[in-house]
C-alpha cells in the first residue's frame, strides 16, 4: 500500500478533530493512523494522518485547507511511517487484544 502522511496544524479546541475526520469520512476515505498532540502553549495541535495515497488526496488537502480551525496542511511523502506501527510499544502495550 502506498501511504502518505497529511500533517496539519490546527486550533486546539473541542470539535476540531470531528471536523477533520468527518470531512475525510464523507469522501469515503479511511484514516489508517492518527497521531495528535498539542504544540507549545497548548493553543494549537499538530495532527499526522496516515492515509492511503490516491487521487483523492490533493482534493482532500484543498478541502482541509478550507476548514476554519485548520491553520496549515501539508501532504508529506517524506515521512517515516514506521512510528504508526509502533504506537503500542511507545505508549505502553495495548491492553485490548486484537480480534
Amino acid at each position: 500500500m502506498n501511504t502518505i502522511v497529511i500533517e496539519l496544524l490546527v486550533n486546539n479546541h473541542p470539535g476540531v478533530m470531528s471536523h477533520i475526520t468527518g470531512l475525510i469520512m464523507r469522501r469515503a476515505c479511511n484514516i489508517e493512523g492518527i497521531l495528535c498532540g498539542t504544540v507549545g502553549d497548548g493553543n494549537t495541535s499538530r495532527i499526522y494522518l496516515l492515509m492511503k495515497d490516491d487521487w483523492r488526496i490533493p482534493r482532500i488537502v484543498r478541502q482541509l485547507k478550507n476548514l476554519y480551525d485548520v491553520i496549515e496542511v501539508v501532504p508529506r511523502d517524506d515521512c517515516d511511517t514506521a512510528v504508526f506501527d509502533r504506537i503500542p510499544e511507545l505508549i505502553g502495550t495495548g491492553v485490548i487484544s486484537p480480534v
Binding site: 473541542p14 470539535g15 470531528s18 471536523h19 468527518g22 476548514l67 476554519y68
Partner: peptide, 14 residues
C-alpha cells in the same frame, strides 16, 4: 446540533 451541522455549514460554533 454542533455535530449534526458540521457537514452542512461553512463553519459552526458551540
Amino acid at each position: 446540533t454542533y455535530g449534526l451541522t458540521i457537514p452542512i455549514t461553512k463553519h459552526n460554533f458551540l
